[in-house]
Amino acid sequence: MGEKKKIVRVSGVTKNFDLGRIVVEVLKGIDLEIEAGNYISIMGPSGSGKSTLFNMIGGLDKPTAGKVFIDEVDVAQLDAYELAWLRCRKIGYIFQTFNLIPVMTALENITIPMTFAGVGDDEAVRRGMALLDQVGLGGRHGHRPAELSGGQQQRVAVARALANSPAIILADEPTGNLDLATGEDIIRLLKELSSTNGVTVISATHDYKMLNVSDQVVWIRDGRVDKIQQREELDITTGGLSSNH
């Protein structure tokens, strides 16, 4: 079997934030390659540049220098339409705060990305229902976010991220606003989707529960990649999912 496809390639990326009188160097030269189908966790303390790197990979921010390739496309070269296309079709976003549209039902939330992608109504509803079933929320399609628990909202968000069968799911602290058990559920769901659908999951996190399911952990410290650990090198002593019984 040949080498796996590199779905994300980050090369020599630096990012400065100009605060007027001072310029803050947040990323100081990051090189990173992510293989398709893997489950990646980006770990690092607050202020390490983790979120900034994460936003770059998601095409939400542009680097000061260096290049970010998503599926071999240079993100910096894209115009507004192409960026929207990329966000719609290639990437599914999951947020710490769920970010469901409060005025819409669970099903409607899931079908918005499909509408943006030009999928017809009937087809969108059919796929939306299937996705709700897949995340274990069949029958809750008519509920608004306010009528769902945090874990259920995050499940809807996961289904929404999968709406257009993206190649990458970006999850920013997906368990940050959830309790321990619910957080584990979401992690397990993401892992399952990554292995069954072959989606690359990239998540920025503080949550050590994540480590156990990750194929690769990227440690960011002070704007640089500190180390990249493969699954087998991980020290699984942090509890959580490792003990299945």
Binding site: L60, W85, R87, Y93, N99, I101, I112, P113, F116, A117
Partner: peptide, 16 residues
């Protein structure tokens, strides 16, 4: 704000 940002993440154009 958050709703608008989310819509944009999901692929909404400015004009939408």
């Amino acid at each position: 704000f958050r709703e608008i940002g989310t819509l944009k993440c999901l692929g909404a154009l400015d004009r939408f």
